[in-house]
């Protein structure tokens, strides 16, 4: 398990992280989401050790993370970086060695990953001669070449075409499932995060807003949201206002206050007309995100 415990970081006046904490299980695909400037990059840099936290601790398998362990992690920074004039194969082998592999093993692993990432025939080309998408594949290779114990990827999907997204998704899920490696990645593509991830952390302004399994988080919200369609009466009907504890959210979705019986809502609707559809509404991750971020900023404003 990789644990972030009460991480704090300031840049002068800006609070980038404010006692941020969450945990990632081994073998999990873990989505790290939050609006621009929320602190995702800052947190990932602290985990990988290129940035020092002002306070807090990162633990791996229960012990504080040290440089020697971090070297066995794989990292893809938000700002991609490769040696432009170095050949692709050499670059991957070099990084394998820097991360502790022997020379022949690093070369072997570089060749393997170039094949898996579909850039085997570019092995001897300089990186600067590759297209941006292929450079991105090399970049991913640098995070994977040394068979890392954990993967920290900052927006790995940005800039990829749909095929590239599929290739990358498959690789990441493969690494997580087959080798039991925790794969943490940040992304703004919430549909993708919902599809790939077992668990997520949602942060805003350096603070954790929600974390947990994707399915659980969605189901948790579902308990209070219901979809109810009345034949011939789209839009928000007048009867709904009379149901105590029900708030229309639009598009035939109602949120019920705690301890409100959904049957009361149904009864009121049936009095108004024939009900064609009635059931719990499971929000998508994107909806959940907007919801919790919105609520969090309201709370912030109220303070």
């Amino acid at each position: 398990m990789l644990e972030l415990d009460e991480l704090s970081k300031r840049y002068g006046e800006t609070v980038a992280l404010d006692r941020l904490g969450f945990a990632v299980d081994e073998g999990q695909a873990f989505g790290f989401v939050g609006p621009n400037g929320a602190g995702k990059t800052t947190a990932m840099r602290i985990v990988i050790g290129v940035l020092a936290a002002d306070a807090g601790e990162v633990r791996w398998r229960g012990a504080p993370l040290d440089a020697e362990t971090r070297r066995r992690f794989g990292y893809m920074p938000e700002e991609r970086g490769l040696y432009p004039k170095m050949a692709v194969g050499q670059q991957l082998a070099y990084l394998g060695e820097l991360h502790g592999m022997s020379d022949p093993r690093a070369r072997e692993s570089a060749a393997l990953w170039m094949k898996r990432l579909g850039i085997a025939e570019r092995a001897d080309d300089k990186v600067e001669e590759l297209s941006l998408g292929n450079q991105q594949r090399v970049q991913l290779g640098t995070a994977l070449v040394h068979e890392p114990e954990a993967l920290i990827l900052d927006e790995p999907f940005s800039g990829l075409d749909p095929v590239g997204v599929d290739v990358l998704s498959e690789v990441l899920l493969g690494v997580a499932r087959e080798r039991g490696v925790p794969v943490i990645f940040s992304s703004h593509q919430l549909e993708l995060v919902e599809r790939l991830c077992d668990a997520v952390a949602i942060i805003r302004a350096g603070r954790l807003v929600a974390t947990g399994g994707v399915a659980e988080l969605r189901a948790e919200r579902a308990g209070r949201r219901w979809r109810l369609e009345v034949d011939g009466a789209p839009g928000t009907p007048a009867w709904a206002a009379r149901v105590a504890g029900a708030t229309p959210l639009g598009n035939d979705v109602y949120e019920l206050a705690e301890d409100t019986d959904p049957q009361g809502l149904l009864d009121a609707a049936r009095a108004a007309g024939p009900v064609t559809r009635f059931g719990p509404e499971v929000p998508t991750l994107a909806e959940l995100f907007r919801d919790v971020i919105g609520r969090d900023s309201e709370r912030e404003a109220a303070r």
Binding site: R45, R71, P77, G81, Q139, T142
Partner: peptide, 16 residues
Amino acid sequence: VEKSTRVVEVILAAIR
């Protein structure tokens, strides 16, 4: 060059 190409962050994830 390592700074401007940002490769330094990749390298420093591995060594000091």
